[in-house]
């Protein structure tokens, strides 16, 4: 649900759908020394609170993180937070963990990374395991199986909505560039779906191939554009 997270963040800052990455400050990630850096205990306390409160998925978590580190404690300026968040979209794995790692490093280096991750994950992972364990005990009851036959389509619906929300800004951005760019994006979207549905190709291979094709073509177009644009 990365897109929902991005959406909430974008609601807070008036920007287009795909977060553009602001230029890095000259000496990042040197922390702003005008604000006193937090002690280990405070850092852990703040992130434990985030981990406990963030019911409602990634969007709620992102909102709470921003409120805590930018607004309440003023540890990180808004622009730096926006840049960190944008960078997390191109790094592997969960964006919110990447964000937590970057913020933790700004605040207290390696110690900060460990404390912030611990604080965010300890409560939320524990609760996830407890819910799963409780569920595993009742999953064979007839009423649970009946309920699940309603829950599965409901979560498929939410997933489909997420797919639409993820694809829309990507396609809109492509449309604003050139016709071939939109065609490429549409072809990659449909082509990867067909490849996953009809062939036995590993998904990771499909992801990398799509990224590679897109990288090469867009790089090529940029080079051609720069050549043909009069100076």
């Amino acid at each position: 649900m990365a897109n929902l997270e991005a959406k909430v963040y974008l609601m807070l800052s008036p920007r287009s759908d795909s977060p553009p990455i602001p230029p890095p400050p000259p000496d990042a990630p040197t922390p702003d020394l005008t604000v006193p850096l937090p002690s280990s205990a405070l850092l852990l306390r703040v992130w434990l609170a985030l981990g406990i409160q963030s019911f409602g998925g990634g969007a709620a978590t992102l909102y709470l993180i921003r409120r805590a580190v930018v607004e309440q404690h003023k540890w990180i300026p808004d622009a730096e937070f926006a840049r960190d968040w944008a960078l997390c979209h191109i790094a592997p794995g969960m964006n919110l963990l990447g964000l937590t790692i970057l913020i933790g490093r700004r605040l207290a280096g390696a110690r900060g990374i460990a404390l912030c991750l611990l604080g965010l994950l300890l409560p939320s992972v524990t609760i996830t395991i407890i819910i799963t364990a409780l569920y595993a005990r009742i999953r064979d009851l007839a009423v649970v199986q009946a309920a699940l036959r309603g829950v599965i389509p409901a979560s498929v619906g939410l997933g489909a909505l997420m797919a639409v929300q993820l694809a829309r800004p990507l396609l809109a951005e492509s449309r604003s560039e050139r016709r071939a760019s939109l065609l490429l994006s549409g072809a990659l979207l449909i082509g990867t779906g067909l490849a996953a549905g009809l062939t036995r190709l590993p998904v990771v291979l499909i992801l990398c191939a799509s990224g590679g094709i897109s990288a090469l073509l867009r790089w090529r177009w940029r080079v051609v554009e720069e050549r043909t644009t009069p100076r």
């Binding site: 993820l166 990507l170 990659l188 779906g193 067909l194 499909i206 799509s210 590679g212 790089w219």
Partner: peptide, 27 residues
Amino acid sequence: HPAMEGFVRGMSLAVVGTFVVVLIDLL
């Protein structure tokens, strides 16, 4: 760099394309 931006966009599109297949399987 356009190649970097292009790679991320291509991979994001593929995530959506392959995710739709999973949704169909789940259903």
